[in-house]
């Protein structure tokens, strides 16, 4: 990554894209689950586990691509857990989500300590290779996962709007009783949606682990799962607007880093670290349209 000769503005946008990507991936995944009527606040925990798993797999194999695949698989598995409990066993989805967050923070720190001797952070591992784009005289490296994120968002938009899968998915999130009467398997569809959501969140975690950082750091999701939830709400459950909102939140994070770089000597860094969260709250409150969530969101469906 050659950032020496980038202008501050391009550097800022560059890091906004990098910091927005994990939020966007998680938000798109969770949006799919929420459209089907399942809320998984456990994405915060899935993200941190995905990051850890990808770093461990890369450490073991030396191949960050395998790391990414393992992150996705673990994410899907946790989505499967949440989906099963919240559909077939009528679990309280929010509490299961909280549990996954605790579990995620805990197991990654414990695992890190077992492998690397202390819970804080792992050793560095290799990261997936980027595409290098020339911008004028300078060059910017862009992760393939960034392109994947954009493709996935457009694909989600397309599937939800134009395909029978999307129509049925939306129907079980709006009115599971009706969908069931029409022979749509509410439980299975919700489970699938939650698994897909988990997989995308796992990918977001892997991005944190073996693309952005190249090492695991405890609690490295740092509330991004919740920022993704905010992005969905600000985006009014529309995939493309949600994508934009995610990158806006990523921009705030980038702004913090850039400001800290520029003025870190004059102003204590803790104040900069508050910026992305303050900005998220402000945007969230201002753009909190009374957007209607799927009608059956977070409500377990029961037959008879």
């Amino acid at each position: 990554m050659n950032k020496m000769n980038l202008s501050p503005v391009i550097a800022l946008l560059d890091s906004a894209l990098r910091l927005g990507t994990p939020i966007a991936l998680t938000a798109i995944g969770e949006l799919i689950a929420e459209k089907s009527g399942v809320v998984n606040i456990g994405i915060e925990g899935i993200m941190v586990i995905g990051a850890f798993a990808s770093v461990v797999a890369t450490y073991a194999t030396g191949d960050p691509i395998i790391g990414v695949l393992v992150g996705v698989a673990i994410g899907a598995l946790l989505g499967f857990l949440h989906g099963t409990l919240s559909t077939y066993l009528y679990a309280d989805q929010i509490i299961v989500g909280m549990g996954i967050i605790f579990f995620g923070y805990g197991i990654t720190a414990v695992g890190n300590a077992i492998i690397w001797g202390q819970p804080g952070f792992s050793v560095g591992v290799s990261t997936i290779s980027h595409l290098v784009v020339r911008v004028g005289e300078a060059s910017v490296s862009i992760s393939p996962i960034f392109f994947l994120t954009i493709v996935l968002a457009i694909l989600t938009y397309f599937v939800l709007k134009y395909t029978w899968v999307g129509l049925r998915l939306r129907s079980v999130g709006e009115d599971p009783e009706v969908a069931d009467v029409l022979g749509i398997n509410v439980f299975r569809l919700r489970l699938y949606a939650t698994v897909v959501g988990g997989a995308l969140t796992g990918l977001a975690g892997a991005y944190l682990g073996v693309d952005w950082g190249g090492r695991f750091v405890s609690y490295m999701s740092a509330g991004r799962g919740f920022i993704a939830l905010a992005a969905i709400i600000v985006g009014g459950w529309e995939p493309l607007i949600t994508l934009l909102a995610s990158y806006l939140f990523g921009f705030f994070d980038a702004l913090q880093l850039t400001l800290a770089q520029l003025y870190g000597k004059q102003v204590p860094p803790q104040l900069f670290q508050m910026i992305p969260y303050i900005a998220t709250v402000v945007v969230f409150a201002l753009f909190f349209r009374k957007a209607r969530p799927p009608a059956a969101i977070a409500r377990p469906y029961r037959r008879e």
Binding site: W164, L167, R168, R170, E174, A179, V181, I184, A295
Partner: peptide
Amino acid sequence: TLVPQFTVLENIVLGSEPK
């Protein structure tokens, strides 16, 4: 047994969509 947020046509074909 209609999904209120869907259009009439979406409701009619839901579950037996022509493809």
